[in-house]
Simulated scan of single mutants.
Amino acid sequence: MTEKIAITPKTHTAPPAKFSHGVRKGNILQVAGQVGFLPAEEGRPPTPAGPTLREQTLQTLANVRAVLEEGGASWDDAMMIRVYLTDVDHFAEMNEVYDAYFEQQGLTRPPAARTTVYVGLPAGLLVEIDALAVLN
């Protein structure tokens, strides 16, 4: 049986509870919900990339990518992406930022499947994203 391996990039702080930023088992990599915190720095508490949806979405995508890469995957391996927004009015703007991000990444394969839902997040956080990847 394949071993389950916890994935934590150097850019991430320890999770605030008993969970992993990502878990890989065999060729499956599940990235836990990531938010738009800036990369970890000694002595600085987790800090959002900024107050805007654009800033937080871009940083959140960067944080998901960091977990994917640490686990040996890339966006091309992503099969499912889930987006959690705190405000239904942010849907169109998030889609614009999301589409532009993946266009800049130069992804030519079919995009991952995606679900978007509306949730409550801690104060100041506007978006959370997770991903499921299958590696070759």
Rank of each mutant, 00 (worst) to 15 (best):
M1R: 00
I5D: 07
T8L: 12
T8Q: 15
P9W: 00
K10E: 14
T11A: 09
H12W: 01
T13W: 15
T13M: 07
A14P: 14
A14F: 07
P15Y: 06
P15V: 05
H21G: 00
V23Y: 04
V23F: 00
V23K: 09
R24F: 08
N27C: 09
L29H: 13
Q30E: 14
G33M: 14
G36M: 06
F37C: 01
F37V: 03
L38W: 08
A40M: 07
E42N: 03
E42D: 14
P46C: 04
P48D: 06
P48A: 10
A49F: 00
P51F: 06
T52G: 11
R54K: 14
Q56T: 05
Q56W: 00
T57C: 01
T57R: 08
T60V: 01
L61R: 03
L61H: 08
N63E: 13
V67S: 01
V67D: 04
V67P: 13
L68R: 04
E69R: 02
E70Y: 01
E70F: 03
G72V: 00
G72K: 04
A73Y: 05
S74Y: 04
W75V: 05
W75I: 06
W75Q: 01
M80D: 13
R82H: 14
V83G: 03
L85I: 05
V88R: 15
V88Q: 14
V88D: 12
D89V: 06
H90P: 07
F91W: 04
M94S: 08
M94I: 00
Y101C: 03
Y101N: 10
F102C: 09
E103S: 10
Q104S: 12
Q105Y: 09
L107D: 05
T108S: 13
P110L: 08
P110I: 13
P110V: 11
P110A: 14
P111C: 04
A112D: 02
A113S: 15
R114P: 01
T115H: 10
V117M: 12
V117C: 09
V117K: 10
V117N: 07
P122Q: 06
A123M: 02
A123S: 13
V127C: 05
V127Q: 02
D130N: 09
A131K: 06
L132D: 09
V134W: 02
V134M: 08
V134F: 12
